[in-house]
């Protein structure tokens, strides 16, 4: 464990808790894409298959349970909660996320480190996580206004993966044989997708004005 990875995990944890707290307290999911949340639940479900078979550390298991629990709770809130579901605008959240899942499955079957069920599922979860934010970014472009909690949520999500890139660089230089091209490339693609959001987020913060994405 190194400081970059710990900071990345804490940032990631904080992003999902910010979102869960927002939905739970103001009983609204306005501006949140259910599709992105469903994709994240799928990412965790396919990545943490080994939670019951391979024990790595108490920290690792606890964090996996928290991520699984929070992502499925968020999906439940938006789909089932009688008040929250009313604030979900399904007309705007129209990104066909099934078009993301199939290419990720095919890519995971073609490009992986080892052709085993667990490894292919793990690779699928990496590719899917890289593109999971797209429905949310499209929704933001459409609704144009971003309430600051949603903005913070997306900022933290992007920041967590950027910290993970620093972690991979650190591990590459400090550990023998630590080479995971697939992880590195999908993590880089994921962070680049946030780049333009970061640009507008930083400028709105610097000019202390409401965050507006260009049409």
């Amino acid at each position: 464990m190194n400081i970059f990875r710990l900071a990345g995990d804490m940032t990631h944890l904080f992003s999902v808790l910010v979102l869960l707290l927002k939905i739970h307290t103001i009983k609204s999911c306005a501006g949140i894409s259910l599709k992105t949340q469903e994709l994240y639940a799928l990412v965790f479900a396919t990545r943490y298959l080994d939670i019951f078979t391979d024990y790595i550390s108490l920290y690792n298991t606890c964090m996996k349970l928290i991520f699984l629990g929070s992502s499925f709770s968020i999906v439940w809130y938006i789909r089932r909660h009688k008040i929250v579901r009313r604030s979900y605008d399904k007309e705007q959240d129209t990104f066909r996320h099934h078009f993301l899942i199939l290419p990720c499955i095919i890519l995971a079957l073609l490009i992986n480190e080892k052709f085993t069920v667990k490894e292919v599922m793990w690779t699928f979860s990496l590719y899917l996580e890289a593109v999971a934010i797209l429905p949310q970014l499209v929704l933001l472009q459409r609704t144009r206004n971003i309430d600051n909690l949603t903005g913070q949520y997306i900022f933290l999500l992007g920041a967590y993966r950027s910290l993970y890139i620093l972690n991979w660089i650190y591990r590459y230089f400090t550990e023998q044989h630590y080479v995971h091209w697939i992880t590195w490339i999908s993590g880089l693609v994921q962070t680049l997708l946030y780049a333009d959001f970061f640009y507008y987020y930083f400028h709105s913060w610097k000019n202390n004005e409401k965050l507006q994405l260009p049409a």
Binding site: D9, I56, M63, K64, E113, K114, Y164, N167, Y178, T183
Partner: peptide, 10 residues
């Protein structure tokens, strides 16, 4: 190459 080190990251 050695067996893929299990994925110890989240």
């Amino acid at each position: 190459d050695d067996d893929i080190a299990e994925h110890d990251e989240l």
